[in-house]
Design a protein around this nucleic acid. Structure first.
Length: 955
RNA sequence: GCGGGUGUGGUGAAAUUGGUAGACACGCUAGACUUAGGAUCUAGUGCUGCGAGGCUUGGGGGUUCGAGUCCCUCCACCCGCACCA
């Protein structure tokens, strides 16, 4: 089957010359011609023409993986390209750039396996991506391309990092300020008006500040900086001697080699995004994003109001501080739970419990946060032997540790109220901890009462109060003796910014006696080290990790220790993937600038991204970081807007559809899907490109891999072999990747573009299926035949259009304009099909209709539109033609065929003028034979006439 | 577990936001033209029934003259969860 198709395609290719003469739709030739024209004439070149109104359409730039582009990638790019072209036709100066997120883990993993340098493989992958993108006919201005791995780009990533390093967040002014200003404040008033976001207990006077050593001062400033150092847990694999990403840990062991892994604390860089939590939350309201997307960010930021309560420990001077959203339930506290990582655990554990606690902690080290949160059925925990004192009753409360309390959230400790919280309840039941009921009959003894309605009982002075009252009363009482304070807590955590990897941006940081300094600080200048950016990533030959889990850069001794005699070392970690992608939209505005990341004029003009298109998988990562960077740059006066993406359009994911064959165990026989139940078989994935629908190309399989060379097939009764199928992520390893190049070669880029849009709403996920593309291809051929007879060539005439033809055209213009603005591209394609069908029926070959139609379809199918536009004798390019306007004279009707229903069931249709009055309509309807039959002479109880919609008779 | 989403013919889907469910396509069936066809054209195609008709938007319930759309409830599937990008 497949072979026959190939032969026919080749046969068609051989006939190209005759095809040209017969003027049939020769997409290969047309598309090649116009692609060349667009490139040669730099048609998509964008100038910073500040006099024209601007529109900025941005795609999430791709990571250039070794597998190349698959048919899922272009979905969003096609949508944004249509919109960009549309806006351009509407007279805007449209910025629609593309680039590459080129640093990342896969290139490094590939380097470890093959020894090829990531710079080389990345270069190759980018070349392939560009060629694939160009094949689809996008209107990118490649002169503005950016690559995050270019030194000329990451120079500015490093520069922004240093701006964050040199800044702190002034909570009163609610903005970032220079750290030098904070030093001035410390010199005059200490930190009494500016508590550290990292350590609220930190307190010093102006005199104390001045008395601190430089190292002490710097360590205090580190508690304020927006880019700072702290500690975080990473996956550590002893056997591989390396830190692993979450993705590299599968089922609790390393993906490579299956070695055991555990959590390890490491010094890391962080971005203090939590200082922006409130602004990131509140300015969501100003954005034109989908409500679910905003909801996801809100939940991620996770604002909750409640109280921080301190519990004294019996027999110890330490205290446990907890955050609770339900201070009203304080009389129901039956035990306390610390995160196993909480520093207090080591201090308070009694000798008797030590062994058991250590055993439990080592178990927790092997568990991911995900597992810890998800597996609620199995309750685990361990008693520390210590007791806390209830702040109001003074009762002794046992202190436990358990994995369900996470160190990174809140204070890493909770007060457990089993009668009012599900997890606490399960825990108490499991460990037989007595439960205090503070809800009276509302608590049934079997399940926690988590509802916030009803009265609090059995709770001393708050008994009988409702939740809100009790909350305030409890906090007031506790506040009066300094045991609590009102507090807002965020789930959002500071962003880890260090990776123990090679293929990323080096930090512009050097350590002098283990104290970190920015490369632009005086201390570094004094050493004679270069202070200018970029700090270039040195070329290396091996990518193995450094000692003690440091990044590979630690092995480049002359780079990592430039001045060994004075104990000066460089930071050998690199920045994470999201560093470069947090600000790339700014670089496109002025990509060549060597003096600044983008000129003020350029950022002022292009301003916010008007439309940002990309997948929901970035909902809380990239989009949140990018928003924070933008706010920081705005605070520091570098740009004049504090939100990067005004409108966001989320495209759905195109999934792969994998094909399976079934091998009879222990043989080289394969059985068709329907008969596999009769045999004992293994499922095996085969290349989806060897399958037509579900029908396997058996000869193709034999040639695919040597192990199938002598395969025997147990076919279906019709002699064909059918595969099973399953929807999965599109990936190389699942053999379900479909390359857009193949589709473009077989049907053309215009068909491909329109087919991807025709698949369904842009935001919906769906599996790829090439079946159905024929319909779109047929449509383009049919449209072609309106303009061009296959024998005689162009058949467009200059006759005046009829009213019917004008109505078709103007209704189409209206519909297409509206649907593009709504990003409803699938219905645009339907409309084009309807229009072409109607014009074919009308036998319309008139310029007055067909010339606007060519412009109308040009954002969707630019190649054929350009060809038709020129066939009509136009000069220049359809890219800069004016988008047609509709005339409402041709889009409004003055009568309507109403559905007439009896009791809501449509029984017939009747036509009335749109301005017909109700009495007339009612009389006419009741006269109607069909209606009379259904009403059986009964007088209607009610007559409903909705103008322009429908008529309903209730009997 | 938490958060977000989705569910409509054999298939992809449409439905001016409460007003004719299934537009537009794929596939399938029959036919025309043709040396030929996976080109092109015509007709049919949700299910059920001889028919008038009845049934139908994941299941159940509700509001309404009227529900795919609103409310309640249950189920199934997909995506994300902080070091993949």
């Amino acid at each position: 089957m497949h072979i026959i198709r190939k032969i026919l395609v080749n046969f068609a290719a051989l006939n190209h010359q005759t095809a040209t003469q017969t003027m049939e739709y020769n997409f290969l030739e047309i598309e090649q011609k116009w692609k060349k024209y667009w490139t040669d004439h730099k048609v998509y070149k964008v100038n910073n023409d500040f006099n024209k109104p601007k529109y900025y359409v941005l795609d999430m730039f791709p990571y250039p993986s070794g597998a190349g582009l698959h048919v899922g990638h272009p979905l969003g790019y096609i949508a944004s390209d249509i919109f960009a072209r549309f806006k351009r036709n509407c007279g805007y100066n449209v910025l629609h750039p593309m680039g590459f997120d080129a640093f990342g883990l896969p290139a490094e993993q590939y380097a470890l396996e093959t020894g090829q340098h990531p710079a080389d493989t990345t270069e190759k992958n980018i070349a392939r991506y560009k060629q694939q993108l160009n094949n689809i006919g996008f209107s990118f201005d490649w002169d503005r391309e950016v690559r995050t791995s270019d030194a000329s780009y990451y120079k500015w990533t490093q520069w922004i990092f240093l701006r964050l390093f040199h800044s702190w967040y002034d909570r009163k002014a609610n903005k970032a300020r220079a750290i030098s200003e904070l030093e001035t404040i410390f010199k005059t008033e200490g930190n009494k008006n500016n508590t550290s976001p990292a350590d609220e207990t930190l307190s010093f006077s102006a005199d104390e500040w001045k008395a601190f050593s430089q190292a002490e001062q710097r360590s205090i400033l580190m508690q304020y900086r927006l880019a700072y150092q702290g500690y975080a847990q990473v996956w550590w694999c002893e056997a591989l001697g390396t830190v692993l990403a979450n993705d590299e840990v599968v089922n609790g062991v390393s993906e490579r080699g299956g070695h055991p892994v555990e959590r390890k604390n490491m010094r890391q860089w962080f971005l203090r995004i939590t200082e922006y939590a409130e602004r990131l939350l509140s300015s969501l309201d100003t954005l034109d994003w989908s409500e679910p997307m905003k909801e996801m960010q809100r939940n991620w930021i996770g604002k909750s109001t409640g109280a921080e309560v301190k519990f004294k420990l019996s027999d110890s001077s330490h205290e446990i501080t907890v955050f609770t959203t339900r201070p009203d339930t304080i009389y129901g506290v039956d035990f306390m739970v610390l995160a196993p990582e909480n520093e207090l655990v080591a201090i308070i554990t009694t000798d008797a419990q030590k062994a058991e606690i250590e055993k439990y902690i080592s178990y927790v080290k092997s568990r991911s946060e995900r597992e810890r949160m998800a597996e609620v059925k199995t309750v685990t925990g361990c008693f520390t032997g210590a007791y806390a004192e209830h702040p109001l009753t003074g009762n002794k409360i046992p202190v436990w540790i358990s994995e369900y309390v996470l160190a990174g959230y809140g204070t890493g400790a909770i007060m457990a109220v089993p009668s009012g919280d599900d997890r606490d309840h399960k825990f108490a039941k499991h460990f037989n901890i007595p439960i205090t009921n503070i809800f009276g009959d509302l608590y049934d003894g079997e399940n926690a009462y988590t509802d916030k309605s009803g009265k609090i009982m059995n709770s001393d002075f708050v008994s009988g109060m409702d939740v809100k009252e009790a909350m305030n009363a409890v906090i007031d009482r506790l506040e009066s003796n300094s045991r609590a304070r009102r507090r807002i807590n965020y789930k959002l955590r500071d962003a880890g910014f260090s990776r123990q990897r090679y293929w990323g941006e080096p930090f512009p940081i050097v350590y002098i006696d283990d104290v970190p300094y920015a490369t632009d600080e005086a201390e570094v200048t004094a050493l004679g080290l270069p202070t200018s950016l970029p700090v270039e990533l040195p070329m290396v030959k091996n990518y193995k990790p450094g000692p003690e889990g440091q990044g590979p850069l630690a092995n480049v001794t002359d780079w990592a220790s430039p001045l060994p005699e004075v104990k000066v070392t460089r930071e050998t970690n690199t920045m994470p993937g999201y560093a470069g992608s947090s600000w790339y939209f700014l670089r496109y505005m002025d990509p060549g600038n060597d003096a600044v990341f983008a000129s003020k004029e350029a950022t002022q003009y292009w301003n916010q991204v008007d439309l940002y298109v990309g997948g929901t998988e970035h909902a809380v990562g990239h989009l949140l970081y990018s928003r924070m960077w933008t706010k920081a740059l705005c605070d520091l006066g570098e740009i004049s807007f504090d939100e990067p993406f005004r409108k966001l359009l989320n495209q759905g994911m195109i999934q792969g559809s994998s094909r399976f064959i079934y091998r009879v165990k222990g043989t080289n026989q394969y059985v068709t899907a329907a008969k596999r139940k009769d045999y004992d078989t293994n499922d095996i994935r085969v290349d989806v490109n060897l399958v037509d629908g579900t029908e396997l190309n058996m000869g193709g399989l034999r040639k695919w891999r040597p192990e199938y060379e002598s395969a025997e097939f147990i076919t279906d009764d019709d002699g064909k072999f059918y595969c099973g199928s399953e929807v999965e992520k599109m990936s190389k390893s699942k053999y379900n990747v479909v390359n857009p190049d193949d589709i473009v070669h077989q049907y053309g880029a215009d068909t491909f573009r329109m087919y991807e849009m025709f698949l369904g709403p842009i935001e919906m996920s769906k599996p790829w299926d090439t079946k159905g593309i024929e319909g779109v291809h047929r449509f383009l051929k049919k449209m072609w035949r309106l303009y061009c007879d296959e024998q005689t060539g162009c058949i467009v005439n200059n006759d005046a259009a009829t009213d019917a033809e004008l109505r078709v055209l103007h209704k189409t213009i209206k519909k297409i304009r509206e649907d593009i603005e709504k990003f409803s591209f699938n219905t645009c394609v339907s409309q084009f099909m309807i229009t072409v069908n109607e014009l074919s029926t009308l036998n319309c070959h008139k310029r007055a209709i067909l010339e606007p139609l060519a412009v109308l379809i040009s954002p969707f199918a630019p190649h054929i539109a350009e060809e038709l536009w020129h066939m009509l004798g136009n000069e220049g390019t359809v890219v800069s033609a004016a988008f047609p306007e509709f005339n409402s004279q041709y889009t409004t009707d003055n009568s309507k065929v109403y559905p007439v229903a009896i009791n809501g069931k449509t029984r017939c249709e009747m036509e009335f003028a749109l301005d017909a009055d109700a009495a007339f309509v009612e009389a006419e309807v009741l006269k109607n034979e069909t209606i009379a039959k259904w009403t059986e002479g009964k007088a209607p109880k009610k007559f409903i006439y909705v103008k322009g919609k429908m008529i309903n008779v209730v009997i």
